[in-house]
Nucleic acid binder design. Structure first.
Lengths: 127, 127
DNA sequence: CTGGATCCGATACGATACTG
DNA sequence: CAGTATCGTATCGGATCCAG
């Protein structure tokens, strides 16, 4: 009765189609360059603020603190302050953070694997 | 003779530590909210420009075209123009794009799984 | 319908200076 | 050493108008 076409034309289904606004917000929080890089490097081992800055590389003091605060608020990173002089602060992944790290690992692997493919695609496109 | 401590203090190893600037640039291209959402939805099926805009939701005309161009340039998305009136343009994932989609799927799963965890962590942090 | 161009506000980001 | 605050600048991103 003409409904087949309409069904076929319906919007697609996926986790994010069904997701509420909170899921979208979290996805946006997490799907950003600095947050993922921080997760990736903290996955190697617990690090101090300065170590993390050097490891990530190219991130400013301000962006690092800002992203670490968001990560801490979302419960992906724990912040341990040692009341010494000079102060020492250790950052490490929570269980949730480590689970995300596994995903980011996959993304790093993907980047390595398709590096050449992407490079040649770019030169083709730019010509 | 005292080198053990220095070795222990060396920067950590990881795919991204060894990565050259190109890998970093690609990672930055890919690790952004809109690009990942587009990849995720195109993974369901080939879509036209308008369908994709509706599916992603909340993305502006400008951001969609802009991100699609970058995705196309990097060889993650193919753009097929049908010379009809009105014009019809289909977007779909390449093999590289589909490989990335698998990673993004993992990220969507992660979001769903830790949604409650993150929500409670936030209220704890905000108090 | 798709897509480019432009204007304009929001915010991401870097540099710097200051505190404990 | 770690963190906050402030100031510019650059890029992000939305709204709108016009063209094929």
């Amino acid at each position: 009765m003409g409904t087949r076409d309409e069904i076929a034309a319906l919007p697609p289904e996926s986790d994010l189609t069904r997701a509420d606004s909170l899921a979208r917000e979290i996805f946006s929080d997490v799907a950003n360059k600095w947050a993922l890089l921080i997760i990736e490097f903290l996955g190697i081992r617990t690090m101090r603020f300065g170590e993390l800055r050097d490891a990530v590389g190219g991130i400013s003091h301000k962006m690092l603190t800002q992203n670490l605060r968001t990560l801490e608020r979302n419960g992906l990173v724990t912040r341990t302050v040692h009341p010494t002089i000079p102060p020492r602060v250790d950052y490490s992944l929570t269980e949730a953070g480590d689970a995300l790290r596994a995903v980011v690992d996959g993304m790093c692997d993907w980047t390595q694997r398709y590096l050449g493919h992407i490079e040649s695609s770019r030169s083709r496109y730019d010509s």
